[in-house]
Design a protein around this nucleic acid. Structure first.
Lengths: 220, 220
DNA sequence: CGCATCCTTATTGTATACAAAAGCGGTAAG
DNA sequence: CTTACCGCTTTTGTATACAATAAGGATGCG
């Protein structure tokens, strides 16, 4: 898409995610335009998209505010993600190609290497984890499903989740990926669905626990 | 929202729904601006919203076209809608307030009146049907779910579906709504889920049949 | 005759100026 | 002391002009 409105979108989004624009903060188009070094026109464009993504809310009188994501909101997102990605896994089980299965195995091996490091290589874990899930979505062959998941799976949340993973969670995550591949090989959609649902819900509980124990640092 | 961009949105939307802008037609901002009697700015605003509503698609080079859905796309959307709205019904069953239940009953009575007309009053049917589903979504209390469903439930498809409903389908639809209210009163999430899933899938098959038998008129 | 490339034209993206509307504060009346 | 109203300031909405980019067609080369 267009350069200026894209930059504005990415920049405002990252400002929200990094906390520069805290939840509840009112958003003034002109101020953002100055920050991003563009005029209000592309900023307004970006705000529209961010509003559609639920990063921004508008009052009844057209004022924009940074959305406030409570832990409940995040659980909500995880529940939806579990449902959608479980559905994707079921579809994928009967559609995935042998070539895709090979790719999934390759990524799992890379994840294994990342986990087996003396200090777990989280960036690599995340990278291959993302590719793994992307391949599953491709195998599910439902553009709408991919599109919706893209909106729900906020990488910052994924990042925070993984950052708080202990080794046990990392290994469990890997094993779930491996099991999912087995289910694909067996063309067992129900099994794939169950594994993926459990995979996402375990991730939520890891996030939730880390978030609770990490409250003090946020409050400080 | 703002007057000009609202008028533009409503007008363009109705042009798409009425077929003045047929599927696949390229959209030129300036031409629409002239038609709506406003400048390009609010038209662009409206196009963004219509794009989010999937009334409009954009090519990789930023050209806008009236969306054209294949039957496979539509089935895909219906499957997702059944899943999401089924989930919403389950959540709603344990959260819906008595006040909301009263509203649901009111809309069902209005739907009944619309259906009982000598010639079914489809606009009224659609209007109260939409309100009914909106209340269910509100009762489900998941903003993300509402948001995603808003993207998936393509109003042109809903409209066409209802336009092709025969009286039998209209009555079945009403009965399903009534059953759903019963399930809510019983706080039976599983029942609500099942009814809603069946409701959506019946709608798909009605659409599918109407679409097939209606091909000739579209081709003409 | 086919195909690549450049040039023209059509269309979209961005900036700026101005208009409309909402918030805010002060003042005066009850 | 409260409240309603008025006008000033801030913020958003719209129009217009201009810049950038993509489509379509002509021209020249193989």
């Amino acid at each position: 898409m267009s350069r200026a409105s894209d930059r504005a979108y990415a920049q405002i989004r990252s400002m929200i995610l990094s906390g520069v624009l805290p939840p509840g903060e009112q958003i003034r188009e002109e101020a953002l335009a100055e920050t991003c070094g563009v005029s209000r026109t592309p900023v307004r464009d970006a705000l529209r998209r961010l509003e559609a993504d639920l990063f921004i809310r508008r009052s009844d009188t057209q004022r924009s505010f940074v959305a406030d994501w409570s832990i409940d909101d995040i659980e909500d997102a995880f529940v939806l993600r579990a449902m959608l990605e479980g559905h994707a896994a079921r579809r994928a089980a009967t559609r995935v190609t042998w070539d895709q299965i090979e790719h999934l195995k390759t990524h799992n091996k890379a994840i294994q290497r990342a986990v087996e490091q003396p200090v777990a290589d989280v960036p690599n874990f995340l990278d291959h984890n993302r590719h793994f899930h992307t391949i599953v979505m491709e195998a599910a062959a439902s553009p709408r499903l991919s599109n919706m998941l893209g909106q729900i799976v906020e990488q910052p949340v994924v990042l925070r989740t993984a950052l708080h993973y202990d080794r046990d969670n990392l290994i469990r995550s890997l094993h779930e990926h491996e099991e999912l591949v087995f289910a694909f090989v067996q063309r067992d959609g129900d099994w794939a669905h169950a594994i993926m649902t459990a995979h996402i819900r375990r991730a939520f509980h890891a996030y939730s626990q880390a978030h609770q124990s990490g409250r003090s640092e946020l409050a400080a």
